[in-house]
Design a binder for these strands. Sequence first.
DNA 1: AACGACAAGATTGTCGACAATTTAGGTTAT
DNA 2: ATAACCTAAATTGTCGACAATCTTGTCGTT
Lengths: 221, 221
Amino acid sequence: MDFFQEQAVTSSDKAFFRLRKEIVEGVIPSGTKLSETELSTKYQVSRAVVREAINRLEACNIVERRANVGARVVSLSPEGLIELYQVRESLEGMAARLAALHMTSQEIVELNALLNSQSDEVKNAELYYQEAGDLDFHYRIILGSKNSHLISMLVNGLYHLVRMYRVQLGMAGPRVTSAFDEHKNIVQAISSRDPELAEMLMRRHITYSKNNIEAKLQNSL
Amino acid sequence: MDFFQEQAVTSSDKAFFRLRKEIVEGVIPSGTKLSETELSTKYQVSRAVVREAINRLEACNIVERRANVGARVVSLSPEGLIELYQVRESLEGMAARLAALHMTSQEIVELNALLNSQSDEVKNAELYYQEAGDLDFHYRIILGSKNSHLISMLVNGLYHLVRMYRVQLGMAGPRVTSAFDEHKNIVQAISSRDPELAEMLMRRHITYSKNNIEAKLQNSL
DNA sequence: AACGACAAGATTGTCGACAATTTAGGTTAT
DNA sequence: ATAACCTAAATTGTCGACAATCTTGTCGTT
C-alpha cells in the first residue's frame, strides 16, 4: 500500500504519522479543532511531541494554525480542490517532463511492466487499480524526475491532501479504463524520451482527473 | 524590501525569522551544523523555541535534519540550483497562467505602473531594479494567481532558497535590461488575458534567468 | 598496524511545570 | 436590551531538567 514507507524513528514521527492518517481517513473530521492536551492524553505522549506533530502537519497544509489560538484541520471545499489540482498539474507535468529525461531504461521497463500488470486487473474488473495502482504509477514518475524538491513537495505534501479529498468523498468511480489509457500514453512518451509530450499528456490527465473528482464533490456537498 | 511583511507574534517566530535571515544572507554559511544549545544561548531563548524554528526551516528545505543527530544548513550546488529552477519554472509558469485569469484589472493597472517606474530606473542605470524590483514583479504575479498553495510554496518556501543562491553568489550581473523586456511581455500577455502565452513567457523568462545564474555558479565554484 | 569493543562526553528527544494569551461568562452601566 | 468591561477558566507558548541516542577517543585484540 505505502510504496515508499517512511519509518518512524522518533516518538514525534509516530504521533505525526498517526495523526495524519486519522485526519486523511476522516477519523478526525475536517474542521476539527486539535487540542494539544487532549491529543497528548489520547496518544499517551507529552504535549511537546503532539505539538511538533501538529507543526509538521501545518507544513503539509493539512492543518491551519493561528498563534495563541490553536490548530484546526483544514476544511475541504470545491475551491480548495481546484487549487490543489492546479498545483498538481503544474508539478506533475514537470515531473513527467523530467522523467522523460532522467528515468533509467531499467525504470522505464519496470513502469511498462506495472502498466501491463494493471491492464489485466482492469480487464478482470478488479478495481484495485483505482486507488493503489494509480498512486503507484504517479509515484514512480515523480521519483523518476530525480528532482528532490519536486519529490518532496508532491510526496510529503500534496499527495496526502489529494488522498484526503478522495477518501472523504468516497472515490471509487468509473474512469478506471480511460485513466488507464492515459497512463499508457504517458509511458509511451517517456519511453520515447519526449519531454514536451510527456508533460502535456500528464497535465491533461490530471485535468481530466480533476474534472472527475470535481463532479463528485458537487454532488456530495 | 520585504513586501509582504510577515510579523512575528511569538518568540519562535522571531527566532525563525532571524535564523532564516542569517542563513540566507550567509552569516551562517552553508553546511554549518546548527546546534540547538548553542543557538539557544546565542538568541537568549529556550531550546524549545530554537528547536521549533529549526523544524520550520526544515519544512522550507533550508536545513536538513537527521533524527538524533541534528540539523545542517543545506549546501549549495549546481545540481541544487537546477532542481530549484525547474520547480520555479513549473510553479511560476502556472502562477502566470492563473494570474492572467484571476488578476483584477486594478491589479493589472498597478503591475503596469510598477513596470513603468522600473523602466525609468533601468534607463538611469540604477541597479536597484535587479534585486527588489525583480522580486516585486514576480511576487505580484504569484499573488495574482489567487492560489493559496501556489503562493505558500513559492513565498514561504522556494523564494528564500532562491535568494540564498543569489546572495551567496553575489548576483548583480547584467541581464537587467533583457529581463525587463521579458517582464514587459509577460505583463502584456496578462493584460490580454492570455493564460497560455503568459505561462509560456514566464517559463522562458525563468529558464533564461536560470542559465544566467548558472553561469555565475560555474565561475565561483 | 588495523579493526572492533567499550566508555566518556556531548547532543538530541521527551517530559512536566510555569507563564502568557485567548476565550467565555457574567456583571454593570447606558 | 445592548454594549462594554471585568473575571475566571482553558489553551497555547516557553522554560529547565531528565532520558535516550549518537559521536569520539581509548584500549585491547588479532
